[in-house]
Structure formats: structure tokens, C-alpha cells
Design a protein around this nucleic acid. Structure first.
Lengths: 356, 356
DNA sequence: ATGAAAGCGCTAACAT
DNA sequence: ATGTTAGCGCTTTCAT
């Protein structure tokens, strides 16, 4: 096992108190003693255990991070941002992933609480209705949400509704009228809802009828035949797809290509997230970009401000911090042409069906 | 602060010992008492602190993970694998990233040692010559490397040399003769070296002259003009590129496309890593695939076997565990045609210059 | 300047 | 079945 302060004390021939002082308040000990103690520390390769310190009621300098998955680079990017600041400020991160599973979320929070983390940075499916967050509030454990779009809880995100609104407006500005929103299986997430809201508003503002989000299985190797049919056949097929995230957009693009559609000639695609990876695609993916890394950084700063009690923003300010989004125009969006738009909107009469 | 076992004891009207037993050996306490204690635990929302337990010399059930970055999905995938098993087996992960920086590597190891992690899973630039690893050996801290390709230390990886060899042979089988290897700025890493070795062997076996790896700045937005020139001009320009990782391959592909080259018509591309993302590209990226997630899982299992002393494989077995790689053929590789191969090899005479 | 001792939260050996 | 107590590594009074 690791040597303890006792071993050092014995080795140096002083008491453990002196060793402790040599470490924590070097100026209070005799230089000669100090030197001897330091030699012993080196000789034994001693590192003070944070356990003892923490037990003494000191800060654990431990922050818990709970993410749905790292397979989506969005979260990996956030984590990078957090890690950068944490490391620089001498904090440790304890990471758990949940795969959006409620049991695992609960377990993660329990575990991290046990470890006396000073705070939590996390992303959940739906922040508004999440019972565990209420529990955290009750227990007084500080936390900051990332990406969750809620006005009720401390969070850092983009304005998902507005961001989606801007994105869909861009599609409309390119002449698209039959625009469909695609969402992952987690359409119930707060941000997916907000994004659909923005989509619907942009559509309505342009006098178009929004459609419900079409759910697409993210992890499937192929696009479901029913989905593919929905996207490609019929006179009212969409000319543009607004995908609720970039990974989904990439999966959809592959599915469409396999169905012999050309992008953007036969279908325009807009993603959401702004993954750097998207720019490497061919054609480069247009996307509504969130500053993921910066969201992680901002979440860290907010949490730390609360944890250390240096939160000047407390009180009047809203618990939500909204970071600016941006639009990345990409070659996956084409201006609409009569060739694609094989069934012009004005030729249709029914006001009931979307796009009709 | 969190309630302690004392608070519970007081609340329930029993001694702390009884509370401890109620938690750790419920069958040894009177059912009525047990019930009361449990009520108090719930009422106070008490969670036993692992600090006390750890202090008692029990296992910390804490494992440190040190990764270069999470921006490369390779590592995020490994981490997913580790996290999955760790969570299932009741272990906690403490994560630190280093950006391949030696200072940060040192700092990470120090920090994790202080926290009394039971072991370390990590990826470093060059395992053979890494002084910190020798230190770990000396300190008796158990660790397992991921992806590092060394016979000297406990590690889990693919056979990078053989994998690269197989990949380059595939290029050769498609008729390519002027094949260049591209590496990131970290060409000094042990795996990059092994991969170049495999490349060179495949070339030589086919009677071709290997070239030194061409270094490409990974993070740059554009391919350096000198690199681009190297790749595109002259009669001896390569017809295929073996990229030492998928991210690099994607960056290169973008650079080539911007230079108006078509892939694979004008240049074939082979990556390394087998990122799922690569299949979503257009054209889908051919790659030498490593089972990243499985590498993480295997590293976990090996570490845990060593940590818990249930390591049946110890002793005679090599410290290296080699997992099988696979080739993912993709549309980024074209069979060579005289159109592309504007300077047939057999027309050339010099044996000195690569590809000549 | 240094040491002795208490106490942080917990478990386990021992006592009742 | 339950309580008492020592001790894990450390910091911090309080003595010396």
C-alpha cells in the first residue's frame, strides 16, 4: 500500500503533525526539519491521501458528470470543455454515462452523491419532468444542466426553439416549402420538443403547415422502409429534411443515398449540433451549430460559482444561460428548383394535410 | 452537509454500529430495528460515505482512466466500453485527458494515485520509452494500456503492424503501386510507427519502395499547400493514400476535394480505426478497423483481473493482448486504371525514389 | 519549533 | 441483538 504520513514521520524522525505542517504550512517549520521531512517524502514517494483531508470536512474538489453517451460527439465535446477547466482549477471529474436509461441516471446520481461530489454537471432526457432533479434540489446538491432546455432549472444551452426556427427559415429562404422534421427515438427530450416548436413556428410564419416530427431509429443500420417511403414517394414528398441532430442527419443521408437519391439535388438536409465532423462530409453538412465545448465550459463556470459561493449571478438572473447558436450553411442544402419540386405547392388544394 | 451515520443513529435511537450493520449485514439485526433504521435513513436521505469505508482500508473501487483526448471518437468508444463494465461491476471511473501533453500525463497520474485508484487504464504516445510507466511499475500501481503497441507492458491493442500490412496489401491488390502513408503530427507514437512498418513491409513484399510517412497537421482547417502539392502533382504522385487514422483520412479527403480531386477516381483512401462515422461518409470510407469498444472492455477485464488478483493469465502469457482487426472495404478505394495511373510504374526506371 | 491528541465517517472485533 | 471502542490518514487545536 501507499505510504502514510506515519511512515514519513517515522522515517524522518518527527511527529506526524510536523510532517503535516511541512506539507501544508512549510513556513511554520524549521528549515532543517523541513528539509529532512521532504527528503523522507521523496524517499518514500509519499503523496498525502485526499481521503484524510476530505474526512476532515474539507472540500472534496470532486465534480460529477453524467452524460447520456459518449458515442455522440456532442457530449464528448462538452466533456472536453469541462475537463479543460476542471484540470486547470484542480478539480477532479467523476464520469458516468446513462444511455438515457432512468435506472442508470438514478444510480449515477446516487453513486456520485455517495462520493460527496461538490456538484453535478449533467444532461438528462427531459429536465422539466425529471423527478431526480427535484430530489437534488431537495438534497441541496448543486447541479447545472447542459443542453437541457428548461427555464425551471439551472442550465446552459442554446435557445433550441429559436435555433431550429432560424434553421428552418434558412430552408424556406432557399425555396423549400415541404419541409419535414426528423427526430431520433428520443423525441420526448426537452430539446427535441423545443426544436420541433421552432420548426413549426418557422413553417407557420411562412404560411406552411408543419408536420409532426418523424421518428427515425438512430442506431439501425438502414432507414426503415416505411420511413424511406415517406421521404421519397408521392407527389407531396418533402424537398428538405430538418434533422434534430447531426448524427441522425448522417444516417439519413446514407439511407437516402442508398435509395439512389442525390443530396442536395433530390433532397436538402439540415442537421443540428454543428459537429466538426459534418464539415468533413461530402457534401459538407449544413447544420444549426451549438457551441458544445463552450457549453461545457459555461456549465463548469456556473457550477463552480455556485459551489464556491461566488455566484454573483444568483438571485435575479434566470437559471438558464443561453449561448448563441449559429448557422452553418453547407452544400447539403440546394435552392429549390422545379425539377425537384415535382409537385408545386400552389397546385395543391387541401389545407388539411401537411405540405398540402 | 450530508447526514452521517451518527445522525441516522441518533434519529433512529440506536448506536452507529447497529446502523452500520443494518446497511452492511441486514440479516444480523432485529427486523423491527432494521425497519426503524431504514426509515431514518430514508427520512434523512442518508448515503454512507465511501470515505469512511476507504479509510478503513477497504477497496476504493476506483479506477483511473487517462486518455489523450475525447475529440477522437476512437477514445470515446474505448471509454464507452470501459464505462459499461465498470458501472456493471460497481466501480467508479475517474477520467482525465492529456492532449498528449507530458505534463498533463504526469499530473493525471499523480492525481489519480492520490485518490488511491486501484488501477489505471490509459493510452500514451509512446509506451516503450515512457518514464512514467516505469514509475508506475516501481510504485506497484497496476495499469493496462490501450492501443499502445508494445510488447514490454500490459496492453490491449490490435496488431498495428499486421493490420496496416493487411490494409496496404488490399490497396496493392486493387492495383495501386504508388501508395503513400500519411500520419498525424504524432508520428512518433508507437502505433504510428508500427503502422508504418506494416505499410513498408506490404510495399516491399510487392516489390515496391515504401516512402517515409508524410506528416499532416490534423487540426489545420486546410491541407498545407506543400502537402497538397506532394499528393497531387508530378508524374509520380500517389494513387492511393494510407492514412494512419480515420479522422486524418477525413481531413485529407476534404482537402483533396477542395483541390478538385474526385475520390476514389483520382485518389484512393484507406483509413485506420474503423470509426462507425466513416461508413456514413460519401463515399463510405475504407478502413482498417480496430474493435475500439472491445479494446476498452478487454483492458477493463485485464486490469480487474490483476487488481482482484484473479489473473489466471499472469506468468507465462505475454503482457500484450492482441485483438483481431478487420478490413472494411469502402468506396474510397478504386481499382487502378490507366486513366488515373498517368505514369505507369513499369515505364519508370529509377529504383531509388519511392514509387519510381 | 514540535508533539500529543481529538475528531472527521465508517467498519469490525469485542463486550454486553 | 445491540452497544462500545479502536483505528483507518489526515488536519488542527492545544500543550510543551
Amino acid at each position: 500500500m501507499s505510504p502514510t504520513i506515519k511512515d514519513v514521520a517515522a522515517h524522518a524522525g518527527f511527529s506526524i503533525a510536523t510532517v503535516s505542517r511541512a506539507i501544508n504550512a512549510p513556513h511554520t517549520v524549521n528549515p532543517v526539519t523541513l528539509d529532512k521531512v521532504r527528503q523522507s517524502i521523496d524517499a518514500l514517494n509519499f503523496r498525502p491521501s485526499p481521503l484524510g483531508r476530505q474526512l476532515r470536512g474539507e472540500r472534496t474538489r470532486l465534480i460529477g458528470v453524467i452524460l447520456p453517451t459518449l458515442a455522440n460527439p456532442v457530449f464528448a465535446e462538452c466533456l472536453q470543455g469541462i475537463d479543460e477547466l476542471a484540470a486547470a482549477q484542480g478539480y477532479r471529474l467523476m464520469l458516468m454515462t446513462t444511455q438515457y436509461d432512468a435506472d442508470r441516471e438514478r444510480h449515477a446520481i446516487e453513486t456520485l452523491r455517495e462520493h460527496r461530489v461538490e456538484g453535478l454537471i449533467l444532461t438528462v432526457a427531459d429536465a422539466d419532468t425529471h423527478p431526480l432533479l427535484d430530489e437534488l434540489d431537495r438534497a441541496g446538491l448543486l447541479y447545472v444542466l447542459m443542453h437541457n432546455d428548461t427555464a425551471r432549472r439551472p442550465s446552459v444551452s442554446v435557445d433550441n426553439r429559436l435555433a431550429a426556427f432560424d434553421g428552418v427559415r434558412m430552408l424556406i429562404a432557399h425555396g423549400h416549402r415541404r419541409i419535414l422534421m426528423l427526430a431520433g427515438t428520443l423525441a420526448a427530450s426537452d430539446r427535441a420538443r423545443q426544436r420541433h416548436l421552432g420548426y413549426a413556428q418557422a413553417m407557420q410564419q411562412a404560411g406552411l403547415t408543419p408536420a409532426p416530427a418523424l421518428e427515425v431509429d438512430f442506431n439501425a443500420d438502414e432507414l426503415a422502409p416505411s420511413v424511406l417511403a415517406h421521404l421519397t414517394s408521392g407527389p407531396n414528398r418533402p424537398t428538405a429534411l430538418f434533422c434534430s441532430n447531426d448524427l441522425l442527419a448522417m444516417v439519413v443521408m446514407r439511407g437516402l443515398r442508398r435509395a439512389r437519391l442525390q443530396i442536395p439535388r433530390d433532397m436538402s438536409i439540415l442537421g443540428f449540433d454543428g459537429l466538426p465532423m459534418g464539415e468533413l462530409l461530402s457534401p459538407p453538412l449544413a447544420s444549426v451549430c451549438a457551441p458544445n465545448r463552450e457549453i461545457g465550459c459555461a456549465a463548469w463556470r456556473r457550477l463552480l460559482a455556485r459551489v464556491t459561493g461566488t455566484d454573483e449571478t444568483s438571485g435575479e438572473t434566470s437559471p438558464t444561460l443561453t449561448l448563441p447558436h449559429s448557422l452553418r450553411e453547407g452544400a447539403t442544402i440546394a435552392a429549390i428548383s422545379s425539377r425537384t419540386d415535382n409537385s408545386p405547392v400552389r397546385a395543391s388544394t387541401s389545407a388539411e394535410r401537411p405540405f398540402a
